[in-house]
Amino acid sequence: MSSAPEGRFRSSSVPLITPGPRRTTLRTGDGVRIEAVYEPCTADAGAAAETSFDSTAIVVAHGFTGSVDRPAVRRAAGVFAQHAAVVTFSFRGHGGSGGRSTVGDREVLDLAAAVEWARALGHRRIVTIGFSMGGSVVLRHGALFTGRSTAGAEAGGIAEREGHIEAHADAVVAVSAPARWYYRGTAPMRRLHWVVTRPVGRLVGRYGFCTRIDRNDWNPVPLPPVEAAGLIAPAPLLIVHGDQDPYFPLDHPRMLADAAGDGAELWLERGMGHAENAADESLLTRIGDWAVAR
């Protein structure tokens, strides 16, 4: 296993494959501190301990205004932990993490740090599962960080870093993800754009939703999710979307699936709303089953 630069996982004293939950602070490639939690698989503790170095870990990427301690994230982690070890974390600007939210741009570095940590703990197979904004992040991460190189490169965006542990995902799940940027076709998305782009809106985000939002526009605009979806293969990709999603209508998941072609599965869930808050235990269980089977 590659060695990480000193301080890469600052505040972490977790030995490889520890038996119980651990909370730590990670350092991203651009120096932002990210809070993260590791939970071992709860399915069969004895068997998991014997095969842990070959086991799967699921890394969960929450939606905008979420955090590692939000009830919906903890509920999802609890269900996924019945299938595999789980790493949850708060994106920059959310919860106890540092920095400011760039609403899906630099967050790909946060996910990369969480994936690196899971590999540092000894897990050889990583599945990333993202919800809403987190769904767009896992798509871009899957396209930019591949098993063919230790880091992806995006024009003006992500610089390759030397000496770090592999940050790629072996399978990707995007739940309630947008296909394209700047979408304003629904009332919830128009409200979200107001929160992100207006000074008063950012104050509402900070004090109403505990989310600190960067005031700067994207420069350059990151790779769109629909383009990223076509670059993830040969890693398996699962796209999950509710037919009652108030944020993104069904043309979004269909565009993602079309872009990915034969490399993706598409689940359109009847009666489901948006993201982790709308994902019930049955759906989370099916996603967990898919994650460990692929």
Rank of each mutant, 00 (worst) to 15 (best):
V37T: 13
R119N: 09
S90H: 14
G96R: 09
A84P: 02
R100A: 12
R70A: 15
V103C: 05
G134K: 02
A49H: 06
T65Q: 06
A57T: 01
R140H: 07
E107R: 02
V68E: 10
T65M: 06
V86L: 08
H94F: 12
T28V: 10
A84L: 04
V115S: 10
M133V: 11
V68F: 08
A118L: 03
Y38P: 02
R119G: 11
P40I: 03
D69N: 14
M133G: 04
R92V: 13
A61C: 15
D105Q: 03
R106E: 13
R33Q: 14
D69F: 10
V86D: 02
G130M: 04
L111E: 14
A143Y: 01
G78Q: 04
S52W: 12
G156R: 02
R124A: 10
R140D: 11
G63E: 15
V73R: 07
A45V: 12
V32H: 03
D69P: 02
R92T: 07
F145V: 06
A76D: 09
L139V: 12
L139M: 07
A76S: 11
R148K: 14
V59R: 03
T88R: 13
A112G: 13
L111R: 11
T88G: 08
V59L: 02
E39Q: 08
G135S: 10
G134Y: 01
F64V: 15
S55G: 07
S149R: 14
S101M: 04
L111M: 14
A72V: 08
R74A: 10
G31E: 03
D110K: 08
S97Y: 09
